[in-house]
Design a protein around this nucleic acid. Structure first.
Lengths: 224, 224
DNA sequence: TCTTTGCATTTTGTATTCAATCTGCTTTTA
DNA sequence: TAAAAGCAGATTGAATACAAAATGCAAAGA
């Protein structure tokens, strides 16, 4: 349920954007669960704004694939079927392959240093029990690669694909037995960039992604 | 059972969606040009609705990448730089490759027939001077392939990428000298599906797409 | 018992209103 | 003259008001 949704007022950011970010975060963190209704009045009261910015935020969530609205019935947090997840992963697989190829050709020395630091940050994070921190460290690692690909359109599209599955991924990351494997894969990725070995990189990224699918599949199955 | 449940479904489509479709079409057809301001009052008067559905439609266009809004200054039709176009094409190249691989594995016999018919439809269209019809026939041909890929998420993402460049593509298609080449390429694609030759298909799709880039690049250059 | 109907309530769709901000122009002032 | 200040109109941001549709439930009818 929607117990403690609060707005953080970044001054001068239109309310619709503040609301959008708030709802987006809530959906990704699982505070708003798939299938949960997004009732305008309810959200407006909760967030202390009128319905107008709520409605605009919902339109944005809709286009991002995080919400679905049925005309005259209202919006709800998007549910994903197993098929949907498979579809998204298929797309991410292709896009990650592209990203890694681009990044391999375009990564600067500074960015390579950044990547190694992000790798270290992830390793440190796994030593804590803070799942949120671990997830964020993993995202940060991949963000460096996407940034190095120097293709903002690609980055956008990958992010939207990532978003759609992240709320199902928490469960996967909660299991500490996978940390060592993740660390090893990240290390391989760094090695691949060091050698500028595109084929190796595409391969390891594919493995890296595939490992998540079964875990996430479990979560989705439980959803029923 | 009652028979005509869907009498005038358009009456049931919320105005925001009608406005969204209208503006989207106008942008893709070039009636609203890149950089042109989208003023709420102006559009509201023009379309005979209030500002509310206009604002919601603009939020949707924004997420689709067709409009850009600066807070407190308003929205405008998104401009694309040469770099943006290159970036989108890079992404489409990867996604089309994926689509063609999926389609190759999953295409039904009925869909293959459909593809051949779409091919014929395109060939016929090129015999007219109706650029709009030619463009639509080309899109229809590719739609069959995307549908055969049986991955709605992929289809969505490809469509959004296509949209972003279509308004720059009209100029390319206006030049009749490219028709024969397009027809030949479409024939090759059909041949590839017939042989189920994935590598050949990926290659021809890449060529098919690359041919567009220089023409579109010209158009963008003129935009300045 | 199982529909059907009517009605009150909730919720969404759209318009309108009011407030804040931006823009361009004119006036002031150093 | 050039920069700053001030002001009016235009435009966006957000709240409120009103209309239309969906929902749930209880009573009526078969």
């Amino acid at each position: 349920m929607t117990e403690n949704l609060t707005l953080q007022m970044d001054d001068y950011l239109p309310l619709r954007d503040v609301v959008f970010n708030t709802l987006r975060e809530a959906i990704l963190k699982g505070e708003l669960k798939p299938g949960e209704r997004l009732m305008e009045m309810h959200l407006a009261n909760k967030l202390g704004v009128s319905r107008t910015p709520i409605r605009e935020a919902i339109r944005m969530l809709e286009q991002e694939g995080l919400a679905v609205t049925i005309p005259r019935k209202g919006a709800q947090v998007a549910k994903m079927t197993e098929k949907d997840l498979q579809d998204v992963l298929e797309v991410r697989d292709a896009l990650d392959a592209l990203a890694v190829v681009c990044a391999c050709n375009r990564m600067s020395d500074a960015q390579f240093v950044e990547l190694k630091e992000a790798m270290k940050g992830f390793e440190d994070a796994t030593k804590t029990d803070d799942v949120r921190r671990i997830v964020e460290a993993d995202e940060a690692f991949h963000d460096v690669i996407y940034a190095a690909a120097a293709n903002p359109k690609l980055e956008n599209i990958i992010n939207s694909a990532r978003e759609q599955m992240y709320r199902y991924r928490y469960e996967y990351v909660k299991n500490p037995s996978v940390y060592q494997q993740l660390i090893a894969e990240h290390k391989s990725i760094i090695e691949g960039f060091d050698r500028r070995d595109v084929e190796f990189l595409k391969d390891i990224m594919h493995t890296h992604l595939s490992n998540q699918i079964n875990a996430v599949r479990e979560v989705i199955r439980e959803q029923k």
